[in-house]
């Protein structure tokens, strides 16, 4: 391991209130949940922060429960918790599908939904699902709660509206009535980072979100609008290609991402019964 430990300080809250008070009084602190990203940085010696807040024992943040016709998922729910939740399986199967494709079982057992969102990688596998489902991020601070639409959560590459004194505590996901669709295209069959990841649902109108094709996960408002007004699949493909901004990187090329995203859209729309 390249990171050092002895110069780091860990705060151990006993309750959410405790945690929020520590964030206010002792901040800035880096929240620590399943550590599946954080400890990779620590191992690589790239983690610069020195003060951390251990959220792991805040079991109250692990709940998965109904909220009206929708679902509320605690930020500390692990990918395994979500995959195994009958409620999620029934109401939000595309989220279960996304969690199933994250890492191996070891990662699924520790990694959390809140962590996936807070880590803010544009390749995060659950993010397109939250975006397509019009999820709301519930942020808490010592001053109270605020609710931010997921589509307004990220402001740029690895940047969000979350303040240093805030924690993600839950995601409220309204009911999705139509069909749901999820597809991840990674660097290999398992344990892969996404090259393109797409989630979609066709409630009263199609809602489509894509990851790994820009600095943040994106919804596709123009493509959705085109589809809502009766565009063909071919037209929708063209609109999507104009709407995303993929780049060449270590794992893939912009061209590949563009063409695959268009193909996935077509596949999804075909499965939704459009033409």
């Amino acid at each position: 391991m390249r990171g050092s430990i002895s110069n780091r300080r860990l705060f151990e809250p006993r309750s959410l209130r405790d945690a929020l008070r520590m964030l206010r009084d002792e901040g800035p602190l880096v929240p620590m949940a399943g550590c599946t990203d954080l400890y990779v940085s620590l191992n690589f010696g790239t983690l610069k922060d020195t003060r951390f807040l251990n959220l792991w024992r805040l079991d109250a943040l692990r709940k998965i429960e109904t909220r009206g016709a929708g679902v509320s998922i605690g930020a500390l729910a692990t990918h395994t918790n979500i995959m195994r939740s009958a409620l999620v399986g029934k109401r939000l199967p595309m989220l279960a599908a996304a969690c199933r494709e994250i890492g191996g079982v070891q990662i699924q057992n520790r990694g959390t939904l809140g962590g996936n969102v807070a880590n803010a990688s544009p390749a995060g596998d659950t993010l397109p699902v939250l975006a397509a489902a019009d999820a709301v991020v519930v942020l808490a601070s010592a001053g109270g709660i605020r609710r931010v639409p997921f589509t307004a959560f990220y402001t740029g590459y690895r940047r969000s509206v979350m303040r240093p004194d805030e924690l993600i505590v839950a995601f409220d996901i309204p009911a999705v009535h139509g069909r749901q669709w999820f597809r991840k295209v990674g660097t290999r069959a398992a344990q892969a980072i996404s090259k393109v990841v797409m989630a979609a649902c066709d409630d009263d109108r199609p809602r489509i979100a894509v990851g790994s094709v820009g600095p943040t996960v994106v919804r596709l408002p123009r493509t959705e609008a085109a589809l809502a007004s009766g565009a063909s699949i071919a037209d929708a493909r063209r609109t999507l290609v104009d709407e995303i901004t993929p780049i060449d990187d270590l794992r893939s090329t912009a061209e590949y991402r563009r063409r695959v995203a268009a193909n996935l859209l077509a596949r999804c729309l075909t499965e939704f019964g459009m033409s």
Binding site: T187, R188, A189, A190, A192, L250, R251
Partner: peptide
């Protein structure tokens, strides 16, 4: 080597 970690240099897993 720009992808010198197991996350980015991928070898076959069980599913591959």
């Amino acid at each position: 080597m720009a992808n010198g970690q197991l996350t980015n240099y991928t070898i076959p897993t069980t599913l591959d």
